[in-house]
């Protein structure tokens, strides 16, 4: 068994990388996967807060890299899920404390004992981002349906392709169906057309996410919020299940007709 290393990144800050990492970690662990979430945002760590594990940290990633502890000692086990761990970032250092080779080495050491390593990348396209992407087998790009976020996502997708880590897959976070319906927000198809990459999830705007982040209990723990369901759908897709994307607007007559035509065509093949 060897873990899949998935790096979650975005370019623009504040689009929800850490929320996505925490919730995918929870959703995968609830499905019986052994998961380590790794906070690669040295100096601005947040993942521990979102997971409610801040007060359990003894050692961090920089301690591991600089040899002050063994890797196992730095892993913080989740208080609710047996198979969910956090490798926290150092808060008192900066991004130069870790190199890309260090991230690769740490991930290689963890690969044998886990199913998924989720790396939460810092915003930006500098060294911290490069470090987070270096060990990745797959990259998820988080964006909001806003022009500026999409533009930054495009830049990052180009860099990922250049690193030979592509094709990256896309998570559209904080979609407001009401605004899309009114034509005031980019809709899913517009974002995908702009970026020309595959989608792995759409997470609707959901107030419970903010409450959850503040209380250290990610929404994915309960299945009854729209965002929680969306994260579980992404986890299922990561595990190879075919989960249809929930329609965010009613398909028009022509769209239904074309879908029907396509389905007919596929059956005949």
């Amino acid at each position: 068994m060897s873990a899949r290393v998935v790096t979650i990144t975005s370019g623009k800050g504040g689009v929800g990388k850490t929320t996505v990492t925490a919730n995918l970690g929870v959703a995968l662990a609830m499905r019986g996967q052994r998961v380590v979430t790794i906070d690669a945002d040295i100096g601005l760590r947040n993942l521990d807060v979102m997971l409610g594990l801040e007060n359990r940290i003894v050692y961090d990633l920089v301690d591991v890299v600089e040899g002050r502890c063994r890797l196992r000692q730095a892993l913080v086990r989740d208080k609710r899920l047996q198979e969910l761990y956090l490798l926290p970032a150092a808060q008192t250092r900066d991004k130069s404390a870790v190199r890309a080779e260090d991230m690769v080495r740490v991930c290689d050491e963890l690969r044998e004992s886990f199913d998924f390593l989720l790396v939460d990348s810092p915003a930006g396209i500098e060294q911290g981002f490069r470090n987070a992407v270096a060990p990745a087998d797959e990259v998820f790009i988080v964006t909001n349906p806003e022009v500026a976020a999409v533009r930054d996502a495009d830049r990052v997708i180009g860099l990922i392709e250049a690193e030979g880590k592509g094709p990256a897959r896309l998570i559209i976070n904080r979609l407001k169906p009401e605004l899309v319906r009114r034509g005031d927000m980019l809709d899913t198809s517009a974002v995908i057309e702009l970026l020309a990459i595959d989608l792995i999830g759409i997470v609707p705007e959901d107030e419970t996410v903010i409450v959850a982040a503040n209380t250290g209990r990610p929404v994915a723990f309960t299945d009854n919020s729209p965002a929680g369901r969306a994260f579980h759908n992404i986890a299922r897709r990561m595990l190879g299940e075919e989960v249809p994307f929930a329609p965010l607007k009613e398909p028009g007559f022509l769209e239904r007709f074309f879908r029907w035509m396509r389905a007919e065509g596929e059956e005949q093949r």
């Binding site: 396209i125 533009r151 930054d152 495009d154 830049r155 997708i157 180009g158 860099l159 392709e161 020309a196």
Partner: peptide
């Protein structure tokens, strides 16, 4: 022969 993305 490829997509030229933002920043390139």
């Amino acid at each position: 022969e490829r997509t030229v993305r933002s920043g390139q």
